[in-house]
Structure formats: structure tokens, C-alpha cells
């Protein structure tokens, strides 16, 4: 019986180790979000040739004069370095945007849609395109 318990525990630990490794590399939920954005970008622009972390980085750091004046840039709350913790204007801490620091980032489609919806409107004064969202996420997944 001891052996059986040992085997069960070992299996459990191994399964956890494996799932942890997989989480650090690729995440099926995040991949699905990216695939959805890719399909959307391709549909609106047949010449679309994939997402670019450089364009994403530029968008992340860009200063906008069109959106709401208190939030001219993503960096207003998320700081210029996405591997650092951010802070909301009302003072609450925001987990780092970089997936290397916050591994469960961009794995909840509802949450991703909600915050792009709000923050693109706050910062840019308009909804983001699928291409912009994909570039932005590609940049942060690589950080």
C-alpha cells in the first residue's frame, strides 16, 4: 500500500512539473487568443504578414494626444519597462505586463477583450485593430 501511495504522489508531482514547464513556454489559451487575432487581422487586410514585436513595442511606448488626457500612453500606468510592476492612477499595483514576469498574462480571453476595449479607448480614443492587439501581445509575450 505504501508503494501505491508513493507512486500516486510521484505521478502527481511529475504531472505538476510537466504542466509548469509547459506553462512557461506555450499556453494553449494564449495561443488561441493569438490565433483569433491573426485570423481577424488577415480578414481585414489580405496583405497582413504576421505580427511584429517592434510595432508592438512602438505602440506600447507611443504618446497619444487624441485619447483621454490623463492617460496619454500605456506607460502612464504600466511604466516604460513592462517587466516592472505598474500602478493605476488611483494607486493600485498592476502586475508586470511581460509574460516572463507574469506567466498567466493574456490567457483569459474575456480579460484581454475587456482591457483592450477600455484602454485603447482611454489612450488612443478609438478601438484597437486586431493587428495592433496582436503586435502588442507579441511584444509582451517576448518580454
Amino acid at each position: 500500500m505504501k508503494q501505491v501511495t508513493f507512486l500516486a504522489l510521484t505521478t502527481c508531482l511529475m504531472a505538476f512539473a510537466v504542466s509548469d514547464l509547459r506553462a512557461a513556454e506555450a499556453n494553449p489559451a494564449r495561443d488561441a487568443i493569438m490565433a483569433g487575432l491573426g485570423a481577424e487581422a488577415k480578414a481585414s487586410d489580405p496583405a497582413f504578414a504576421g505580427f511584429s514585436p517592434q510595432r508592438g513595442q512602438a505602440l506600447y511606448g507611443a504618446k497619444s494626444t487624441v485619447g483621454k488626457p490623463d492617460t496619454p500612453s500605456c506607460t502612464t500606468c504600466h511604466t516604460a519597462d513592462p517587466t516592472q510592476m505598474g500602478q493605476t492612477r488611483a494607486g493600485k499595483e498592476i502586475d508586470a505586463m511581460a509574460v516572463s514576469k507574469t506567466p498567466n498574462r493574456f490567457t483569459d480571453p474575456e480579460k484581454v477583450a475587456k482591457w483592450f476595449g477600455r484602454n485603447c479607448n482611454s489612450v488612443l480614443g478609438r478601438p484597437c485593430t486586431a493587428a495592433e492587439k496582436g503586435d502588442f501581445l507579441t511584444y509582451l509575450i517576448g518580454r
Binding site: 483621454k68 490623463d70 492617460t71 476595449g117 477600455r118 479607448n121 482611454s122
Partner: peptide, 12 residues
């Protein structure tokens, strides 16, 4: 909520 103290805070 679309302009909540300077930010868009809309919810479903």
C-alpha cells in the same frame, strides 16, 4: 463609466 475620472471603465 465611459469617462470614469479620466478613464474608460465600462463593463459588460
Amino acid at each position: 463609466l465611459d469617462n470614469h475620472y479620466g478613464e474608460d471603465a465600462t463593463m459588460p
